[in-house]
Design a protein around this nucleic acid. Sequence first.
DNA 1: AATTATAGCAACCGCGAGGCA
DNA 2: TTGCCTCGCGGTTGCTATAAT
Length: 240
Amino acid sequence: MVRTPCYDENGRKKGTWTLEEDKKLAAYITKYGSWNWRQLPKYAGLARCGKSCRLRWINHLRPNVKRGNYTKEEDEIILNLHAQLGNKWSTIANHLPERSDNDIKNHWHTTLKKRATNYNNKNNIESNTGRKITSVENQNASANKNNNMHENIVLESSEWSPKESSSEALSSIDYQQDIFQEELANLEEITSGSFWTEPFEVDSTIDFVAPSIDYHGLVCPPSPFIPHEFLSSFDLDDYN
DNA sequence: AATTATAGCAACCGCGAGGCA
DNA sequence: TTGCCTCGCGGTTGCTATAAT
């Protein structure tokens, strides 16, 4: 289910993310934000490309992201929106803030696609009998996902498995929050006290870089892994 | 028990849009 | 206007787990 880790011609890692990489990425973005995806992995001490970091963050690590175990209501929203929008996964994902576009896309191709034909046929039948689902109704249904779905949006009960509850998804969120708290604490500990003034034990596997100015004129924060002797030549006050 | 087929999902790739110099 | 850079999107691939034979 995962890709075998390997390295590209630039020495950047590809494939499955390790727990350690997840922790580094989550901790860094939680503390500094995603100011520049391309530069971020260098500052975060990751041998990954920016694209990979962005994807990992959006699909797995960002707060409150829910994985797997789609509810019946979520399925209905996706089916409904896909019928209107087509493969506009990012737009569909906007209606399901806890889901990523990639996750929705995968879910569509693996599960919902098969139902779509029946679903569309059903809508056509309803339309022909004078109970057409309007786009306004669809929007209301999407925006109000905490309430019961619109009466017209019905899936065959046999098509939805009750095993797809939200319990496992919630445990995924708990797991991510644990990572945030643990690594944030580590970062705070690392970057506080004598960290900035004491000599640093350099990890030769990490590509150290200097703080810089991004295109918004903001100081790009240095990685907590940058050694003291390298940092000492920079004064962030000069940039601010 | 071994082999093959299928499902499910993580992640990569290529392209277009938009911002900036 | 043009070219470069970054980001985000959608299509696709690669791999594992599970089911079927």
